[in-house]
């Protein structure tokens, strides 16, 4: 089983993004895909997280992820509020939307993928702040679990009638422009 924990802000679309990856995984035979949002007293802008678990077999445990393989962060400013890397597995991956280069971060030497998803998504034709299709591109670049083409198909399905081309373009631009920093030292966050 692979466990992907998504950190975003209320209204940012982290749930939609992880649902897209779940659907692509399901379509590729990973039929145990479940996505569990964790609900607090959230409102727009507040930190939220959700748990995406992917496996070949049915998943019975719907408790929130404690030891993620991957942490996806939709807003780099969350790093000031939330310990996003908590429990990250050894050899784990952090996927981060940030305007800064990967060298600006430490994360205890963990593997890190970054892209300026905000800017690239606007370049793709999305309104400012729409980052949930772009961040999937960064994830797919660094984490090989589902073919990127399947993910693009699911993006087109999910955003049917809501700029599907621009969303797919954003994912592709972010995929192509992501920087992946391999783990250094022990690679433990």
């Amino acid at each position: 089983m692979k466990e992907i924990r998504w950190h975003g802000r209320g209204g940012q679309g982290a749930i939609t993004a992880s649902k897209i990856v779940a659907a692509a995984a399901f379509g590729n035979g990973l039929t145990g895909a479940v996505m569990i949002p964790t609900f607090g007293t959230e409102r727009r802008g507040a930190p939220v997280f959700s748990s995406l678990k992917i496996a070949r077999e049915k998943i019975y445990d719907l408790s929130p992820i404690e030891t993620p393989d991957v942490v996806v962060v939709l807003d780099h400013l969350l790093l000031k509020e939330v310990d996003v890397a908590k429990g990250l597995k050894q050899d784990g991956l952090i996927v981060l939307n940030t305007p800064k280069p990967a060298t600006a971060y430490d994360f205890g030497g963990a593997r890190l993928a970054v892209a300026d998803v905000n800017a690239l998504s606007v370049e793709a034709g999305l309104p400012p702040g729409r980052v949930n299709s772009g961040i999937i591109g960064v994830l797919c670049r660094a984490f090989d679990i589902v073919p990127f083409e399947s993910v693009l198909e699911e993006i087109a399905n999910e955003f049917a009638g809501k700029k599907p081309e621009a969303n797919a373009r954003a994912a592709r631009l972010c995929y192509e422009n992501a920087t992946v920093r391999e783990a250094t030292a022990a690679g433990v966050a």
């Binding site: 749930i15 649902k19 779940a22 399901f26 039929t31 895909a33 479940v34 996505m35 569990i36 949002p37 609900f39 998943i59 719907l62």
Partner: peptide
Amino acid sequence: GYLLSHTYMP
């Protein structure tokens, strides 16, 4: 509630 009502699964 939430655990099933709001969780996505196939």
